[in-house]
Design a protein around this nucleic acid. Structure first.
Lengths: 238, 238, 238, 238
DNA sequence: AATGAATGAGCCTTCATTCAT
DNA sequence: GATGAATGAAGGCTCATTCAT
């Protein structure tokens, strides 16, 4: 079994021990953090996988949390570089831009080439946030949300309120993240269903179609507070 | 600061009953497990909150994992008792049953009266599963999924394939769980938006409307593999 | 699986719960103490095997050590009752008495009908003494040693010193106890050699013959300090 | 009170060398394991005596069991180095070789310069074996047994069966180990008898003489199954 | 009289971190 | 600059014992 560090050192021409170790630590840490999360990950495990000393993390990054933040940022940028959001081009129909948005989002969090590391780390960050979440929201999540809002604004009818746009956005993101957050359950419910590139494309189409169809209906039925006066709705208890 | 156990003992008429400690442990454990998860929770913390000895968990439950499983089951049943799924009554229109399904689901995982403990524990279980997940899927998640399938079958057109039903189901569940799993992010993105009963009702209506609208469109457009031949879709890399 | 206590209660006509529990505890404790020793044994294990409450040992015997002492005494007496030392009868030839001594000793510590419990407890007591050893020496070991001395005095020549008798006695007891103390090693060295009644009889004959033969030689060669002047013995270091 | 580690560090010329702690742990552990055995020994006690941190054992040896195995091996080798078995030299009379065998064996398990640590650990290992016993038998006990067999074969007459040799070997080893295993009892029975170097030499002579004398008798009397037809032996009960 | 519940000390082990080269 | 060694605070768990019926 070859360690991450050996791979790094053999591949790099410079073979600068300092940077190679730092690189190996980042790679090993990405694996470990994605697998077991920040809190459950141990410095020892990371260092062992990086073929580095126990003290290497503290030496190179100061402490475990800083290393984690750096990994999170790096993985986020890597995912965004490999699968960028579509450009905000008004010439492209909004429906196409939505599809591209959904596809790139799904690929960032689920595609195998990233070992789904980014998605898993994001999922953990949401369910069990660390102090790194604030930065993540600012640098990565909020820009994404704004872009989706922009697409939806183009899709929805004129009279659509900001709140409806916000809710629709969350409905779309919810559909996407479901496959990332609930993978263990989905695998148990539908063991035959694969998680490969083809499946990702199928999900892209489904989520896009489902959402476009929903939006068309919402636009037609007007604002949410006035619709369906005929429904006798039983209030939930409490 | 009053401990859980004191509350239990003071509130009960039979204060000091023989398993008041057991009750206090279950309550304290539900809090702790929901807050920090199974792995991060410490039995010392749980026992302190329950005003019990460190050995109390071991005495009453054997070990931490058994306590966790018991808490998970109890919270699941409590949530289901307070907010049961709607009955599978063919006389009730499927659209109403879907709304009831969405509402009860949202309340089970988010309602304040449960401190959202059940939802948080479920979210953790999905992102970072323990051995308890298998049982949870069997006893709680799968039955729920089957019920949703049944509702969707009634809603969708005759020719709708099982796969479309499955995808639609996940789109709906994804929308619901989003507010549970991504609460930390939602709070950061929209600090002004509350997580109260009114909000829950608004979410119920939105998700129901969004999904009904989507389903109407899907039923009209036929099977997913043949539709929209005109779209020139760029394949994902890899 | 029937517990010791059930057996006791079913067999006893009186079915007095108090004494039955006490009896069951003694039996269970004998098993456990023989298997794992005093220190490693746990009250919980003993009580579980006796189908009694955790507090039963403390209730009936005060504490673990008292229970242990009582078990040790009881097993010692039981062994002595089943396999008593031969009577100190001057009419019986000393060689026969030695053989009887060896046989009864071997049976007390090794015979299967006692599950070798007494032997194992004695072995542990010697290698890892508890406070019960003093009493054991006084009530059981010293009387035995005196009897052996008496037999050897009859066997040995007139001029034999007390010290030679003492050493000879230890040589004989050492041979016997070897099979008790070193059973795990003997089993590993000679896996084919059984530990059954036939083997016990063979050992009896061997040890008796070996020792009688040795004693005949010692009696003939005179006092130990003067014999074999021809040997050039290298002194041990230190 | 001076700790083992201080002694180690002060005595060595390279005081503070990188594995002084390791050395101190081994020494302290040898003391503790010999005193109370593997199971009863605590890492805390060992570390305190070695003036090391509680985690030191884990760092240097992985766990308690590995430390124990290492101590056992080291003590075994140390004992064998200080008091090696006699060479298998055919030129030396077998009686002399037997005496040398007995003497070195006694010194290995009882001599004060080793604090009898090896003997006490071996005794515990036999009465309450750990997983280390298998290795001990293979590397240390079986070779010793084979050597004794070889000596006895030279001593005994031609027609002596392997079984008689085996029994005779155990009779000899039993005599030796008696003083090791039963020391607490011997001290109580004969408080005036010391356990010093002179005593060891006396024991060597006694055991050698006793055994040589016995063997001479056995060789003369023929095979064990046919001898002494005249004895009217009462069968043991059972 | 007899027991289920509770106790707190102590077990081995693991952890992120710091120290002394 | 970089590391093997050491640290001490918890971690979950087990123990003999005692308490309150």
């Amino acid at each position: 079994m070859s360690t991450t560090r050996q791979r790094v050192r053999e591949s790099g021409a410079d073979a600068g021990s300092h940077d190679a170790t730092r690189r190996a630590l980042l790679d090993a840490a990405a694996d470990v953090f994605a697998e077991v999360g920040f809190r459950q990950a141990t410095i020892r495990d990371i260092c062992k996988r990086a073929a580095a000393n126990v003290a290497a993390v503290n030496y190179h990054f100061g402490d475990k949390e800083t290393l984690y933040a750096e990994v999170l940022t790096e993985q986020s940028r890597l995912a965004m570089r490999l699968h960028p959001s579509p450009p905000d081009d008004p010439a492209v129909p909004a429906a196409i831009r939505l599809e591209q948005f959904v596809r790139s989002f799904l690929q960032r969090v689920l595609s195998a080439e990233l070992s789904a590391r980014h998605g898993r780390m994001m999922a953990r960050e949401m369910v069990d946030p660390t102090r790194a979440l604030d930065r993540l929201v600012k640098e990565s999540i909020r820009p994404n949300a704004l872009q989706l809002s922009s697409i939806l604004r183009d899709l929805a009818g004129q009279g659509t309120t900001e709140e409806v746009l916000r809710l629709a956005g969350m409905s779309i993101v919810g559909q996407i993240l479901f496959y990332c957050h609930c993978q263990p359950v989905v695998r148990r419910l539908f063991p035959e269903s694969p998680y490969d590139a083809g499946q990702l494309e199928q999900l892209t189409r489904h989520i896009t179609d489902f959402s476009l169809s929903a939006l068309r209906g919402l636009s037609a039925s007007g604002s949410p507070s006035r619709r369906r006066p005929q429904t006798k709705r039983r209030r939930a208890r409490t």
